[in-house]
């Protein structure tokens, strides 16, 4: 059976194609302001990647902030459930999952079958989501992709006072004016962000193994700060963490079918 999982997120829309439970294709596109066409585009990209035709897909499963726009979906999977399943799919030993995307941060405690036991969410405030790092990158005029590697090159701990993405912009600009090197500023930014995500994880309890999915998992600086804050050596991250929820949605549908 061929299933497409689509995650229509705030920033990117991601699609994966699963054949008998194995990933055979992926596609991602910017969501922009027209969610429906982003859904179509990302699906087309994933079909092309898999080398199959739209008619070959048996069922579509949707998740993400814009899941209502996935018109052909046979099933709409709540984001928490999708991320829990994804973690279990990639790492059966996972007990805690965190998903940090452009506009949200979540932490979920799961059992050995990937069932949700408990969860905590942060949304609607950019300070606790990937948007925070993006805004800071703009403020200090560094490419977003550069932020993480830069942070890794610093071993300073500069505390940040602002707890708001907007106020933090002025704070980092102030640091630049005070001639603080950008590596140290980048580290401060990631530390601040990681401490917010960690306190959310602590609410559900830190149970190893810890899995991270979502676009921010691609940022090595963030992952480094996260490990340090949590006091653990390893965070499990799948190959393409941004596709986590899409995979989870597809797996949920497969199991129910």
């Amino acid at each position: 059976m061929i299933i497409a999982g689509i995650d229509c997120g705030a920033k990117n829309t991601k699609s994966v194609i699963l054949r008998d439970g194995k990933i055979i294709g992926k596609g991602m596109t910017l969501t922009g302001f027209d969610q429906a066409s982003a859904v179509k585009e990302s699906l087309d990209a994933s079909l092309k990647d898999a080398g199959i035709d739209a008619r070959d897909v048996d069922k579509i499963s949707g998740t993400g902030a814009g899941m209502e726009e996935i018109k052909d979906a046979a099933m709409k999977v709540n984001e928490i459930r999708a991320m829990a399943k994804a973690a279990n799919y990639f790492f059966p030993s996972a007990r805690t999952v965190t998903d940090v995307g452009a506009e949200m941060g979540r932490a979920v405690k799961i059992d050995e079958r990937g069932k949700v036991i408990d969860f905590a969410i942060n949304e609607k405030c950019a300070a606790g989501a990937g948007a925070f790092i993006e805004a800071m990158a703009r403020a200090i005029e560094v490419e977003l992709e550069e932020m993480g590697p830069m942070a890794l090159r610093s071993d300073k701990s500069i505390p940040m006072n602002a707890q708001c993405a907007i106020f933090a912009e002025s704070e980092v600009v102030g640091l630049i004016h005070a001639k603080t090197v950008k590596e140290d500023i980048s580290k401060a930014i990631h530390d601040a962000m990681a401490s917010r995500i960690v306190s959310m994880i602590r609410r559900i309890g830190v149970n190893e193994d810890i899995v991270m999915i979502g676009g921010v998992a691609l940022n090595p600086g963030f992952v480094g700060c996260l490990k340090r804050e949590l006091g653990i050596d390893r965070v499990y991250i799948p190959a393409d963490p941004a596709f986590g929820a899409a995979v989870g949605a597809a797996v949920v549908l497969k199991e129910e079918a």
Partner: peptide, 14 residues
């Protein structure tokens, strides 16, 4: 509809 200034900016652009 967004309270957060960061998200309200995105909304306004839309």
């Amino acid at each position: 509809s967004s309270i957060c200034v960061v998200y309200a900016k995105t909304e306004a652009t839309g």
